[in-house]
Each structure stands twice: as C-alpha cells, then as structure tokens.
Simulated scan of single mutants.
Amino acid sequence: MQWHYAIRLSSLYQPQSLRELLQRTWLLSRKIVHFLRINERVLVNGKYVPVNTIVQGGDLIELNFESSDFDTPLPPFDPDFTQAPIILYENSDLMVVNKPTGVKTHANQPHELGSMMNFLQAYFKDTENEAYNVHRLDQFTSGALLVAKNPVVVPILNRQISTKVINRTYLCVVSGHLEQSKGTINVPIGFDPDDKRKRQINGLNPLSAITHYQVLAQYENSSLIQVDLETGRTHQIRVHLSYLGHPIIGDPLYNLDNTQQPMLLHSWKIRFPLPFNLETIEVTAPIPDYFNFLTK
C-alpha cells in the first residue's frame, strides 16, 4: 500500500530547511524522514533534493509513503453494518464522528462488534481506508471522536495529542452548585485498587491530571459545566468533578445518586491543525436532546 501527497506551500510560508518542514512543522518522525530521504521519496518541485535544502512559499512538496515505513498495525476490528456512523467532518486522512452514548470507542475482544471502530470499518468497506483509533471516549460519553484513516497521519495526530496541540472541550451537567464559577483541578489520578473499572485521586501509579472548568449555567439542583482538558487520563473529568463533590449526573461509577438516565458528559468541540496543512479547524458535535432533562 502506498500514499502520495502533493502539497503546495503557501505564499505566506516562512522559508526553512526541508528537514525542518518535515519534522518540526509536519511532525514526521526522524525515522520516517530517514526512509523518505534514503529512498528519494520526497521531491521538491519534481526533483529529489537534500533535506537541508531551503524550501519556500510556492514550492511543491511531494511525499510518497509505503506501508513498510510504519509500525502501526492494521486495525483488528471486524466490520459491523448495524449502525451508520454520523460524520461531522471528513477528508482523505481523517474524520471526526459523533459517538453516541452507550457505544464503545473500540472493541476489546477478538471479533467483538458494536463499537465505533466496528461501524467505521463497515463504512470503509470497498475503500482503501481503515479505522485507526487515535483517542478514545468512555462508553457513556457522547460526542466528537477523532479517527485516522491511514497509518501516515496516526503518529502525527498522536504527537499533536502528546504536545497538547489538539484541544478538546466537553460539556457536562453535575450535581449541585460549584463554589467557584471557574477553576483548575490539578491532582493526580491513579488506579483504584478495589475496582479495576475505576480510577481515583492519588491511586495506584498516579499520573498528573489537569482539568480546567467553567460554570455556564446553574439550575435548581445542578450546573452546566464547560471543561477543557490539559491532560487526557482515563475517566479524568469524571474523577476530578467527583473529587470536587459535584459528580456528573448519570455517571454509573462515580455518582452514588446515579439515576437511570444517560451520563451527561459530551465531547462538544475538538480543535486541531490538519496534517500537512497549517489550517486549524474546529469541529462541534451537536448537544444531545437528553441534556435538556435538567435544563428546562
């Protein structure tokens, strides 16, 4: 399998070496740049040039990738045709889908069906695309989910996540009223030694976790909160808000007063630069109707 890219640099592009363009701007790894260089699969204006060559606005950069360049394994997900994914944004490299509550991001067992990755594998049937999991949403969290369509952009998107270039904004409804209208929660999260499903503050093998929140509205017994993640730990929003004494309504793990209703946590917006492009886009997932339950 091969992937070909032809990118015309903008007239506003600031000159730099081809190596800097590939590694610093486009976030290709040194290993991939090495393969492109030694096999002469990177061209500038139709010719192979050394990677220390200065490129500038108007230059045409061509990249040719092969499957052997990448360590990313093929997705192990079987296609599931029972549910069509809702596409919020799509180009040749990636897509943002609207994950419903109750649907897993990916299957955990061989030949398991019913996850978003299964539905996307079916969506890609008879194409050369595959569904590559870039990040995950909890099963009962709805909203915007970023998915790669080829192994070229998987490491790029992973680096965008690790360097906090990708910004994710969530909405949730929590129990009660917070003392402060906005703030930052900066406490580590680790494993719960008594329940392998759960995480807890300062649990086993804790990792730093930073959550920024802002109260958007208050209701009789609840509050609508906007949350921006600086880190992306498992169950981070759920654990941090429960730690404040304001668990998310409908949370089956961290809200002792959980009622039989969907968890009111929604991946609302995701903002990121497109690979091989300096354009930053923001994709918004419509707020589910069940969020009106306590806001009327």
Score class of each variant (00 low, 15 high):
Asp78Tyr: 09
Phe77Asn: 09
Ser29Tyr: 05
Gln56Asn: 09
Arg37Gln: 12
Ile32Ser: 01
Glu66Ala: 12
Asn52Val: 08
Phe65Lys: 10
Gly57Ala: 12
Val103Pro: 03
Leu63Arg: 09
Tyr89Asp: 04
Arg37Met: 07
Gly46Cys: 03
Asp80Arg: 11
Asn39Ile: 02
Val96Trp: 04
Lys104Ile: 00
Gln56Thr: 15
Leu60His: 12
Ser92Gly: 00
Val97Ile: 11
Leu74Asn: 14
Lys47Glu: 13
Ala84Pro: 02
Glu40Lys: 05
Ala107Glu: 05
Thr25Arg: 14
Phe70Asn: 06
Pro73Val: 08
Asn45Pro: 05
Thr72Met: 09
Asn45Ala: 06
Lys104Trp: 01
Leu74Tyr: 12
Lys99Cys: 04
Val97Ser: 02
Phe77Leu: 03
Thr82His: 10
Ala107Val: 00
Gln83Pro: 02
Leu74Asp: 15
Lys47Asp: 09
Glu40Asp: 05
Pro79His: 07
Gln56Arg: 13
Phe35Trp: 08
Ile86Val: 12
Val33Cys: 11
Ser67Tyr: 07
Ser67Asp: 13
Trp26Lys: 02
Glu66His: 09
Gly102Val: 01
Val51Ile: 11
Pro76Ala: 09
Asn64Ser: 14
Lys104His: 08
Gln56Ser: 14
Arg24Phe: 10
Ser67Thr: 14
Leu43Gly: 00
Leu60Tyr: 08
Thr25Cys: 08
Leu63Asn: 11
Ser67Leu: 12
Asn39Glu: 13
Asn39Ala: 09
Phe70Lys: 06
Asp59Val: 11
Gly46Ile: 04
Asn98Gln: 07
Ser29His: 06
Phe81Ser: 06
Leu43Val: 02
Ile38Met: 03
Lys31Tyr: 04
Val44Trp: 01
Leu63Tyr: 09
Arg30Gly: 14
Pro79Asp: 01
Leu28Gly: 05
Asn52Tyr: 12
Ser92Ile: 05
